Each structure stands twice: as structure tokens, then as C-alpha cells.
Simulated assay, not measured.
Amino acid sequence: MMSPLVARLLLLVCLASPLYGVEKYGSCMQGPAGPTGREGNPGTNGIPGTPGIPGRDGLKGEKGECINEIFEEPWRPNYKQCAWNSLNYGIDLGKVADCTFTKLRSDSSLRVLFSGSLRLKCKNACCQRWYFTFNGAECTGPLPIESIIYLDQGSPELNSTINIHRTSSVEGLCEGVKAGLVDVAVWVGTCADYPRGDASTGWNSVSRIIIEELPK
């Protein structure tokens, strides 16, 4: 039979043994990590958030430029012809023929042409000038439109055999003529510093003035 003292010692050893085992396990080395686990299933959408606070107005921009678009009408041909059969005009100074033309734009140019027979004869050296006018004034944009005939030698009498009629032309382009009704005329006159002779225009043939409005 065990004595009471031995029994108490055994009871104390039994009570102390679990504590000793825990302490011993806590001091053991940690083992290797286990394999990575699989990803879980996607979660459901959360509750929508509330709207944010409205942003503030930005800085005021610079004032823009105003551009006006100009749409012009397409150019329309505008021309006219005046013709005469056998003018036979023998004046030496003055208007030979005219042709009225309606100019549509002020920023356009006028192309003019006179075609007809011209003749000059004289005793000594002489010169005659055929030129255009626009509403009574010669062209200044840029210069007059003219043609001349100069004869150096003649016969003692104006009715000499030197009497050659040739079809000639007076042609040019004039700028700066305003829109509206324009009186286009051909004149005959003298050349500077030379005496005039016996002029003839449009003998025994057709003469014509052609006027055309052109864009600049």
C-alpha cells in the first residue's frame, strides 16, 4: 500500500507534465510552407456609390476671332461686239466709232479690240494715232490703248500714189473702269511732235469693236 506522501508526489508530476509538453512543443522548429491554395470565386458587385460633387467652372477662355465667309458667284462671260460694213471714215481728228457696254463689276478689267482698215498719206513726214476712250477718257490703268502709223516720205500732193490701206488693230486691257454703262470709243488724232496727215479708217471693209469683261 502506497503511502500518502508518494501519492501526492505522483499527482504533482501528472499535473506538471502537460505544461512541460506545451513548452517543449513551443520551442520546436517551424516546418516548410504548404502549397498555395486555389483562387476563390469572384465576388458579386458591390452597391453603386453615390454621385460625386460637381466640379467647379474652369477659367474663362480668350475671345475668339470672328471670320465671315464670303461666297462669290461664279464668273459669267460678258462680252459684246459692234461691227460696221465699210465705215469709209476720212476724218483726221475725232471719234471714229463707239460701242456701249454694260460692265458688271468694278474690280474687273476690260479687254478691247478694234479691227479695221487704216490709211495715212502726207507730203512730208506725218503721224496719226488711233486710240480708245472709256466714257470720254483714255485708259489710265495702266496706260492708254493705242496704235500709230508713221509715214516718212510722201509725194508733193496728197493724192499721190502712196495710198496703202491695211487692216490693222488697236488692242489692250484697261483696269479701273467702274461698273455700269460704259461708252467705249475709237478716236483718231495726232502723234506728239509730228504734224498730222490725211487719215482714213474702215475703207471698203468690215470694221469691228469687241469688248470683253475679264476677272482680275
Rank of each mutant, 00 (worst) to 15 (best):
G46T: 01
E157F: 13
T44L: 15
A97V: 15
L59C: 04
P4F: 02
R56K: 13
L118H: 15
R105K: 15
R119C: 13
L110F: 10
L151W: 00
L9W: 04
C191D: 06
V13T: 11
N78V: 08
G94S: 03
G90K: 08
G43I: 04
C14K: 05
M1T: 15
I162P: 01
G40K: 13
L181N: 08
Q153W: 09
A199S: 14
G172K: 05
G21S: 14
V112F: 03
P48C: 05
L10Q: 12
L93Y: 14
W84K: 02
V170D: 00
S27I: 08
E213C: 08
C139W: 00
G154V: 10
G141R: 06
L113P: 00
E171P: 00
A192D: 05
I162L: 05
R208Y: 08
P142D: 01
E23S: 13
S117P: 01
P35C: 01
G197N: 04
W187N: 06
T44K: 14
L12T: 08
R129L: 09
E157W: 13
D107L: 09
G136P: 07
D198W: 12
N204P: 01
I91Q: 12
G94Y: 02
I162D: 03
D107N: 15
K95D: 02
G189H: 01
Y20N: 03
D198P: 00
N204D: 13
N124M: 08
N85R: 09
R8P: 00
